[in-house]
Design a binder for these strands. Structure first.
Lengths: 345, 345
DNA sequence: CTGAAAGCGCTAACAA
DNA sequence: TTGTTAGCGCTTTCAG
């Protein structure tokens, strides 16, 4: 009863009344405007503290057209890679005063379109996105660009589009891994490849091929097995297939860690030693590569750096004159060498 | 040149002018208000579509005092548990029309306090939080309650406080796991316990003890090893310790999966068979429990359900008369039985 | 150094 | 069925 407001969140107006000042004065004091006397600043800040005043970002955002919100769209959030990238994003964003709104597309374009709507409605100042597996057209992203909202793709990008992006140099990763195996004395190196329509897997394969070529090793198509990079079993099957060749490989570069683990299991079953008989390198540096026996050498994707780089690019886009050429940031992967590829020769 | 606005995002006012209607009319048409003619609704929606109109949630939120934003604070986001919980949160929240703002406390109270400020400023309608390891007082949460903003704790809660919470029944998990081992014929069951000041680990241990008691097995304090639940090595050390007992255990219930893997590695080194010589059960159902050899039986924490339950509780709190007794939702864990504990007798 | 006033885009009485 | 009006909380000219 009475005219009390239901939320007891004090507003600028409330402060102003209590202090016998104008709202604008209070606003300026709180924003540390240079042309306000120290005396009143103190007064204002004291009361604000006491009443537990919280600025209303919605209102401020509405007024000045800046929400201080940053949108992120990922295919899914569980799974190490995206989780760590998001960690990096959140870190860098909050340092710059932005809050992060997370959306999952669940690998579904329709959902992704919906996410874009949501984020635009929320008036985000930028969108960082890693596209879903079912995304093949650019239409829903064009809306974002038309609004003049900075758009940064990371990791998974749409091929054949000129966009701002942060990606890993998957080619270098494949090259590095393969070269390492060669340096360990391996001669017949097989490859577990992922779906080639996805750039990342195509690049890893190309790096593998070029490393072989550079070192004068033969390129044999039957040494490449295409398999589902997620499932463990396909690694087993792929290994099985390669073991049946007249001359079996003495090393495998797998485009995924899961497949590498599968291979490891099969090799163990077949009484083959890793790395002496077959050396193994995976990709992604998943946590479980440090839990197998032997530990699996793997290409690290610098996930957290990727998140931070994406935010940096976004911030930079916001400051630049306007729509200049799309930027590409390419991160260099690192090879984490472990027992599965170390031949102590 | 010209009076053009810099963002070409059309507003309700723009639509109204173009249509020769009033803003409120357009607003109602878009919100599908029953007292607007179908004819004009069509007209309005058509133009909105064509101009790619996006409602401005900031403005709407400001006006009606509802931001449709939900805040989440977690200690960190990488690591399966929180990632999956957040997946559940995002799913349930977006279904209810809420966007989710994620913050990380990095296990630091100071940071957590900062997160609260951020979320309050963003005018979230509720906060879901899993407290940091360094959080011991409730002060910064009281501010939230005073504002009348629903607050739901999940997984990690402050002991001795009456708050809304969603937790896992860790006791039941410990009981279940131990009972399963007993049913497999194990008689001397050891336990790797986590730090007992954390409720979750204390409860798991108690479940273990009560299961032993119920089945008339002896309770021996030397069968319990206290170790760091994160590190792999401590599992090895703990196992080592138990193997040196005059009568070595024939099973281990580990309060963490990582320690269980450590134990597995040591047992293999010692040429002991799992589960024939020593059976093994872990806790958390981490992904890598399906990658070891043998696969490790583990207690699943229903992470995604926990996220959804937290959102449900939040929604429910928003509707209820007001400040009633704090609600507690207790989720029942499930035992995922795998080879490490299955004695084929 | 401070105040008055306008308005960001939208919703919700109250009128018509 | 539609229009008018006021105002959410804040920033920001423009005047003092």
């Amino acid at each position: 009863m009475g005219k009390g407001k239901q939320t007891n969140q004090p507003s600028l107006t409330d402060l102003a009344k209590l202090l016998g000042l104008s709202v604008s004065g209070v606003s300026r004091a709180l924003n540390n405007d240079p042309r306000i006397s120290q005396a009143t600043k103190k007064r204002v800040q004291a009361l604000a503290q006491q009443l537990n005043y919280q600025p209303n970002h919605l209102a401020a955002g509405l007024r000045r057209g800046k929400s201080k919100l940053l949108g992120v769209i990922v295919p899914f959030i569980d799974g190490r890679f995206f989780a760590v990238v998001i960690k990096g994003i959140e870190l860098a964003a909050s340092r710059a005063g932005f809050s992060v709104i997370i959306c999952q597309s669940n690998e579904d374009v329709a959902h992704e379109r919906q996410n874009i709507e949501t984020l635009l409605s929320a008036q985000v100042e930028g969108i960082l996105v890693s596209i879903s597996r079912t995304t093949h057209d650019f239409a829903h992203f064009e809306k974002v660009q038309q609004r003049g909202i900075p758009l940064v793709f990371f990791d998974r990008i749409l091929v054949g589009t000129r966009v701002n992006a942060v990606v890993l140099d998957d080619y270098a990763g494949g090259f590095l891994a393969t070269q390492h195996l060669i340096e360990q004395g391996c001669q017949r190196i097989g490859h577990f490849a992922g779906p080639q329509q996805l750039g990342i897997y195509a690049h890893r394969r190309q790096g593998y091929l070029d490393a072989l070529r550079k070192h004068g090793l033969p390129l044999a198509e039957e040494f490449i097995v295409y398999c589902d990079p997620i499932a463990l079993d396909t690694g087993k099957q792929a290994m099985q297939k390669l073991l049946q060749l007249p001359e079996r490989p003495d090393a495998i570069f797998s485009a995924s860690d899961a497949a590498a683990v599968g291979a490891l299991q099969l090799l163990e079953e077949q009484q083959l030693r890793v790395p002496q008989d077959v050396a193994l390198v995976g990709f992604s540096n998943e946590m479980f590569t440090s839990l197998t026996k032997p530990l699996i050498t793997s290409v690290d994707q610098c996930c957290e750096q990727m998140g931070q780089a994406a935010v940096r690019l976004f911030l930079q886009l916001g400051q630049e004159p306007k729509s200049q050429a799309p930027q590409h940031v390419v991160l260099q992967p690192e090879l984490c060498i472990r027992a599965s590829s170390l031949r102590n020769t």
